[in-house]
Simulated assay, not measured.
Amino acid sequence: MKTKKILILGGVTEGYILAEELASREPFHPISSLAGRTQHPRPPVGETRIGGFGGVEGLHAFLLERAIDAVVDATHPFADTMGQHAALACDQAKVPLLRLERPAWMPQPGDCWHPVADWEQAVAFLQIQGARRVLLALGARELAPFSTLFDTWFLLRTVTQPDPMPPFTAAELLVARGPFTLEQELELLRRHEIDTIVCRNSGGEGAAAKLAAARELGIAVIMRERPQRPSLPSVATVAGALDWLCDQPG
């Protein structure tokens, strides 16, 4: 039986689970690709590569060189550049491409969400709202636009240390990796007297506790909406991705 080489563009939990599932099944050989932006990332099961491909041309060359049979884009919902590159490279190489993406969060009764398209809109809304104590639950590279707000105190919760640290006038840095429980989020929000949360609509259960805590405490949430993705076959679960891969010829 011919081995099927599956390139998993990783970044979220589902990519790790898919690699583990494929590694235990014939005839699949998973190759997980991580961007390398997180220090000391957890290695997926199976073959792993870390770092960029060098744009569309680099990814196209990799697909041909390694004779990849199919690609699963399991990158973060906000890794839109990689998504665009994958669509173009797979189209050129005639390699099937699937998007594995967890469903977006949807507002529940009692939520006070304010959707924005980018961080500039978020900054403007904070000014209009008159927010005073804000939790930024963002990536370390996304903090800088908010450092222009001199009358707002920020709790900066990131997975990695910002380098360089943006010039906030008043801020406290909390380097921590979730998932966090509802009780932990309630305690954090109360202790720091947070009146607004800024985050991305990443979806999934691991980061949803802060939204439940905000709902319980009546805290506003500025939610950045997901960027537009290429029109592709798409599934929301690892099981769906496995079914799709099993249906691919070869």
Score class of each variant (00 low, 15 high):
residue 146 F to T: 04
residue 201 N to D: 15
residue 212 A to C: 07
residue 104 A to V: 12
residue 219 I to W: 07
residue 158 T to H: 11
residue 170 A to P: 07
residue 118 D to L: 01
residue 202 S to Q: 14
residue 186 L to M: 11
residue 193 E to Y: 10
residue 184 Q to Y: 02
residue 181 T to I: 03
residue 210 K to A: 11
residue 217 L to Q: 09
residue 198 V to L: 11
residue 158 T to M: 08
residue 211 L to Q: 10
residue 175 V to Q: 15
residue 126 L to K: 09
residue 147 S to W: 01
residue 150 F to P: 00
residue 158 T to K: 09
residue 149 L to E: 02
residue 108 Q to M: 15
residue 133 R to H: 05
residue 154 F to G: 01
residue 159 V to D: 09
residue 103 P to C: 07
residue 195 D to R: 07
residue 171 A to Y: 08
residue 127 Q to H: 15
residue 173 L to P: 00
residue 193 E to L: 13
residue 210 K to N: 12
residue 222 I to N: 14
residue 222 I to D: 12
residue 163 D to Q: 08
residue 229 R to S: 03
residue 137 A to I: 02
residue 224 R to V: 07
residue 193 E to P: 05
residue 181 T to M: 00
residue 147 S to I: 04
residue 171 A to F: 08
residue 144 A to R: 06
residue 132 R to Y: 04
residue 201 N to W: 13
residue 226 R to L: 00
residue 140 A to I: 08
residue 222 I to P: 11
residue 229 R to Y: 05
residue 188 L to P: 00
residue 228 Q to T: 05
residue 172 E to N: 04
residue 200 R to N: 13
residue 130 G to H: 12
residue 211 L to E: 10
residue 231 S to T: 12
residue 146 F to N: 06
residue 202 S to C: 12
residue 146 F to H: 06
residue 164 P to F: 03
residue 193 E to I: 08
residue 189 L to D: 03
residue 127 Q to I: 14
residue 116 V to T: 06
residue 211 L to G: 08
residue 227 P to I: 02
residue 194 I to T: 14
residue 195 D to L: 10
residue 211 L to W: 12
residue 145 P to Q: 14
residue 208 A to K: 15
residue 222 I to A: 07
residue 184 Q to T: 05
residue 206 G to K: 10
residue 203 G to L: 05
residue 220 A to V: 15
residue 220 A to D: 15
residue 127 Q to R: 15
residue 110 G to P: 01
residue 196 T to S: 15
residue 111 D to R: 02
residue 102 R to S: 09
residue 177 R to N: 11
residue 200 R to F: 13
residue 174 L to H: 09
residue 171 A to E: 08
residue 115 P to E: 06
residue 144 A to G: 02
residue 231 S to F: 09
residue 209 A to N: 12
residue 115 P to G: 03
residue 214 A to V: 07
residue 174 L to I: 14
residue 202 S to Y: 14
residue 119 W to L: 05
residue 203 G to N: 09
residue 196 T to G: 11
residue 156 L to M: 04
residue 173 L to K: 01
residue 117 A to I: 00
residue 226 R to V: 03
residue 135 L to T: 08
residue 132 R to I: 06
residue 143 L to N: 05
residue 156 L to K: 00
residue 196 T to N: 13
residue 203 G to C: 08
residue 198 V to N: 13
residue 223 M to N: 05
residue 227 P to G: 00
residue 102 R to I: 09
residue 167 P to S: 01
residue 208 A to F: 15
residue 195 D to E: 10
residue 205 E to P: 06
residue 142 E to M: 09
residue 143 L to E: 04
residue 177 R to T: 13
residue 231 S to R: 13
residue 222 I to E: 10
residue 107 P to T: 04
residue 171 A to M: 05
residue 218 G to W: 10
residue 133 R to S: 03
residue 186 L to R: 10
residue 176 A to D: 13
residue 108 Q to H: 12
residue 136 L to H: 09
residue 132 R to P: 04
residue 215 R to G: 00
residue 208 A to V: 13
residue 122 A to D: 08
residue 228 Q to G: 02
residue 196 T to Q: 12
residue 143 L to A: 03
residue 199 C to K: 10
residue 116 V to L: 04
residue 201 N to R: 13
residue 122 A to M: 11
residue 146 F to V: 11
residue 160 T to M: 08
